[in-house]
């Protein structure tokens, strides 16, 4: 788990301590619905790119050991 990010309103954001004078936060105002829109479009885009390269994705074997995140959603 990194200390560089925080979980807020259902998504990850850069931690305040990592911002600096070069971070555009003071310059750009963005609310949660806009963040949600971007995330939704990203997921839609990734799905599109899978489909672009092949007709299907093979599923992993059932019961395969899988990593579990220690904090937050994964």
């Amino acid at each position: 788990m990194t200390e560089q990010a925080i979980w807020k309103d259902g998504h990850w954001e850069v931690a305040p301590a990592v911002r600096g004078e070069n971070v555009p936060l003071p310059y750009q105002l963005m609310n949660s619905p806009e963040r949600d829109r971007i995330i939704a479009q990203r997921h839609r885009y990734l799905e599109y790119m899978h489909d672009h390269f092949a007709d299907s994705l093979i599923q992993p074997p059932e019961g395969v050991e899988q990593i579990e995140s220690e904090h937050g959603p994964h």
């Binding site: 788990m1 560089q4 990010a5 990850w12 850069v14 390269f53 995140s69 904090h71 937050g72 994964h74």
Partner: peptide, 27 residues
Amino acid sequence: LRRDDEAWIPLPEWVNSAVATICYGTS
């Protein structure tokens, strides 16, 4: 990747490196 990639951020500390394998072909 842990800096800002939503999928990598919450990985446990022990994850140190990774290997990706990619297969393409018939089902």
